[in-house]
Simulated assay, not measured.
Amino acid sequence: MIYGIGTDICDVRRIQASLDRHGERFAQKILSEAELATWHQRSERWPERGVRYLATRFSAKEAFSKAIGLGMRMPMTWRLCEVGKLPSGQPHIVLHGGLKTWFEAKGLSVHISVTDETDYAASFCVVEIIGKNGL
């Protein structure tokens, strides 16, 4: 059973403008430690790719926050929600701390899709109820 659906589109140029204004502090606010390490690697090799990586993570977390119905209110925070990658390359959501506890207590499961093009990053998220409350 679907608990919520979220979608987000992000202008990569807006992310670049935030990086220009705030520097790495902006990335540190949005990204988990693991994501921040990946961002550094991608940014060093190809700065535009690093900006698009940050934009896709921003977009995915926005879509997820909409799908769970919290927006950016506790227990949802940027850094407690991480966008990982399975060995197949498929993106997946990894939760931490109080957000993980809240999500698991509700018996939820998440599916995320992210994409980017030169000027835009977009994400689509579906959150399902699993177990005895849902499927």
Results as ranks from 00 to 15, higher is better:
Glu104Cys: 02
Thr38Cys: 06
Gly131Ile: 02
Phe26Ala: 13
Phe26Tyr: 12
Gly98Trp: 09
Lys29Thr: 09
Arg73Ser: 15
Glu128Leu: 10
Leu19Met: 08
Cys125Val: 15
Arg57Thr: 05
Ala60Trp: 04
Val51Ile: 15
His111Trp: 09
His40Trp: 01
Glu35Ala: 10
Glu33Ile: 07
Ser113Tyr: 06
Thr118Lys: 10
Trp78Arg: 09
Pro47Gly: 04
Asp8Lys: 05
Lys132Phe: 05
Ser88Trp: 03
Phe58Arg: 03
Ile30Tyr: 14
Gly6Pro: 05
Ala122His: 07
Glu44Trp: 05
Met74Ala: 14
Ile15Gly: 01
His92Met: 15
Asp119Lys: 05
Leu95Thr: 12
Phe64Ala: 00
Asp11His: 10
Glu128Ala: 00
Glu62Gln: 11
Cys10Ile: 06
Glu62Ala: 11
Cys81Thr: 04
Asp119Met: 03
Ile68Val: 15
Leu31Ile: 06
Thr115Gly: 12
Ala63Ser: 08
Gly134Lys: 04
Asp8Asn: 06
Ala121Gly: 13
Leu54Asn: 13
Ser109Cys: 09
Tyr120Lys: 14
Lys66Phe: 08
Gly98Arg: 11
Gly6Lys: 01
Gly97His: 08
Thr56Met: 00
Ile130Pro: 00
Arg25Val: 13
Ser88Val: 02
His92Asp: 15
Asp119Leu: 05
Asp20Pro: 03
Trp46Gly: 03
Gly69Ala: 03
Gly89Gln: 11
Val126Thr: 01
Leu54Pro: 06
Ser18Trp: 04
Val127Glu: 03
Phe26Leu: 12
Glu117Ser: 15
Arg79Met: 11
Pro47Gln: 04
Leu99Asp: 08
Thr56Phe: 07
Leu31Val: 08
His92Ala: 14
Phe26Ile: 12
Glu104Gln: 00
Val12Phe: 04
Ile93Pro: 02
Ala63Cys: 01
Ser59Tyr: 02
Gly98Pro: 10
Ile112Phe: 00
Arg79Cys: 13
Glu48Asn: 07
Glu82Cys: 11
Ser113Asn: 05
Ile112Ala: 00
Ser59Gly: 06
Thr118Val: 06
Gln90Tyr: 13
Thr7Trp: 14
Val12Trp: 00
Leu86His: 02
Gly50Thr: 10
Val94Trp: 11
Lys66Leu: 07
Arg73Thr: 15
Glu44Phe: 02
Glu82Pro: 01
His40Val: 02
Gly89His: 13
